[in-house]
């Protein structure tokens, strides 16, 4: 059975604002997590949800959370000294490939990508971080990626910072002008579907981090299925070879009932 992955109440060490909607909660939780892996975070009486690990090291982890619903707002209201239930880390993260990397993030989908950029740089890869968001105030981890030594291309839908347009447009140009060995992406699924398509066209390797409604987090309940794949256990990061065969990638997801919203 291995070591059980029981819920541990982790102490909140620090809460830091990343942008007006997004905060990082740092926890006293020693774990070896790879970028792209996630934990289940439990607020007693409020619920439990999966969050990707955005910082990891020195016996602490960080979860970078956008204020979207009641649960994430409660999470953002945690104060140092408070506690959060954590189980995990779960799933398969990004596999660091040798060579030049392009990392493409959309909105709060960039949450695991600052960590990824740092790890890629540590492994010696040249990294281009395409950081896309609706508007300037929603950009996430551009400065962090820059500090890690990545070249950062900022794109906003409204042109309030960087180039005006989608991250996928910037990626398309990048793939035409430079030799990229692997593209790593996390963000809205429609964006990732486009990224995977561009990579397939250009014969460039790609990995995408998917998101689905989850319950167990460790591959038993089946709730997070995308075709026959379990996002929590087989993913959340999938390689292009798999993405290309997933019928539901970019087209269908299940709600808490298990109903398909196609």
């Amino acid at each position: 059975m291995g070591k059980p992955r029981e819920t541990v109440m982790a102490r909140v060490l620090e809460v830091r604002a990343e942008n007006p909607r997004v905060k990082t909660v740092y926890l006293d939780f020693a774990a070896k997590a790879a970028p792209g892996q996630f934990v289940m975070a439990w607020i007693p009486g409020e619920g439990e949800k999966p969050f990707s690990v955005s910082f990891c090291g020195g016996a602490r982890i960080g979860l970078t959370v956008a204020a979207i619903g009641p649960f994430s707002r409660k999470l953002q209201e945690l104060k140092p000294g408070g506690v959060l239930g954590i189980r995990g880390p779960f799933g398969k993260g990004f596999k660091l490939k040798e060579g030049k990397a392009a990392v493409v993030g959309g909105g709060c989908g960039s949450a695991p990508l600052g960590f990824l950029v740092e790890e890629l740089r540590r492994a010696g890869s040249e990294v281009v971080f395409v950081n896309g968001a609706k508007t300037k105030s929603e950009l996430l981890f551009a400065a962090r990626a820059n500090a890690a030594g990545a070249r950062v291309i900022v794109c906003t839908d409204d042109g309030s910072e960087g180039r005006k347009g989608f991250a996928t447009d910037a990626l398309a140009e990048l793939l035409e002008s430079e030799k990229i060995d692997c593209v790593y992406t996390c963000g809205p699924e429609v964006m990732m579907k486009k990224v995977a398509g561009l990579c397939a066209q250009n014969c460039v390797d790609c990995q995408a981090s998917l998101e689905r409604f989850m319950k167990c987090g460790f591959g038993v309940c089946g709730q997070c299925a995308v075709d026959g794949m379990l996002v929590c256990r087989d993913g959340p990061v999938f390689p292009l070879s798999r993405l290309a065969r997933l019928r539901e990638f970019g087209s269908a997801r299940r709600d808490a009932c298990g109903s398909v919203d196609a």
């Binding site: 992955r5 289940m40 619920g47 319950k215 167990c216 309940c221």
Partner: peptide, 23 residues
């Protein structure tokens, strides 16, 4: 079905209260 947490691992097995979620 029931809200999360619904499925947990413990020392010698699992415990669940998914609560018959279905479409």
């Amino acid at each position: 079905g029931h809200p999360n947490p619904t499925v947990l691992e413990w020392g010698c097995g699992l415990i669940n209260a998914v609560g018959l979620s279905n479409p």
